[in-house]
């Protein structure tokens, strides 16, 4: 039962992008098309599950003082793996994700789950946690990608829509549209949940949280 909860919490309740506001960079950058959103989400899920398994298995061996570099190396290893896989099997996706595939390494969702969950829990819950968080991330990236693709290009997953494709609002697939769409989606999600929108972006599990917060509250 509790395992099921570990799995489903990432979908809505603790959705990494829309609720805890982690991993903003890929959310904004690659979601110009719905298919890119799915691709990026699944690639991140792969890395997340892989690194969660390894970190959970090694949690007793990794010394506390150097845990962050260790986590980063493990994560970077899986990123290299997924780079190979995508390059070999889905070269079009590999090209459209570009540099953001390598940048999965510094995605704070992954480091955050390693720090908050995998380093404290057994393997099975860690797998489920990684899978749930990854799919939640995929879900919100796909949502972003779909909205931007419909409005900005008049298509969904490459199929063109009548009326909308005649004069699409290209601005939505440009950088400015990314910020705008994410802002609106976060506002709507919080409205639907009858909650106040968050004041700050998520820092849960980010290794820099302490120093960042010090700066935020008025500096040094």
């Amino acid at each position: 039962m509790s395992n099921l909860k570990e799995f489903t919490k990432g979908f809505i309740k603790e959705n990494p992008t829309l609720v805890t506001l982690l991993g903003m960079c890929p959310t904004l950058a690659v979601t110009t098309q719905a298919s890119n959103g799915i691709g990026m989400g699944l690639a991140t899920t792969f890395v997340l599950v892989g690194s969660n398994i390894v970190i959970s298995l090694l949690k007793k061996i990794i010394p506390d003082a150097v845990r962050l570099p260790c986590y980063i190396v493990i994560i970077a290893g899986f990123v290299t793996l997924i780079e190979f896989l995508l390059k070999g099997y889905v070269p079009t996706l590999y090209d459209s994700l570009g540099i953001f595939l390598s940048l999965i390494t510094v995605n704070c969702i992954i480091l955050g789950r390693a720090e908050v969950f995998a380093s404290k829990n057994k393997v099975v819950p860690s797998i489920l946690d990684g899978l749930g968080m990854g799919l939640g991330f995929t879900l919100s990236l796909t949502l972003m990608g779909t909205v931007r693709e419909i409005l900005g290009n008049g298509t969904v997953f490459g199929f063109s829509l009548p009326l909308l494709n005649e004069s699409p609002m290209t601005i939505f697939i440009l950088p400015a549209g990314g910020f705008f769409t994410l802002g609106i989606i976060i506002a709507v999600v919080n409205k639907l949940k009858h909650k106040k929108p968050p004041k700050e972006i998520g820092c849960k599990g980010c290794p820099n949280m302490a120093s960042c917060e010090k700066l935020r509250n008025g500096g040094i």
């Binding site: 506001l21 910020f179 705008f180 994410l182 802002g183 609106i184 976060i186 506002a187 919080n190 409205k191 106040k196 929108p197 968050p198 004041k199 700050e200 972006i201």
Partner: peptide
């Protein structure tokens, strides 16, 4: 109120 915080910052 719906936009106060992060949504307004993003817009």
């Amino acid at each position: 109120a719906m936009f106060k915080g992060v949504p307004a910052t993003l817009v």
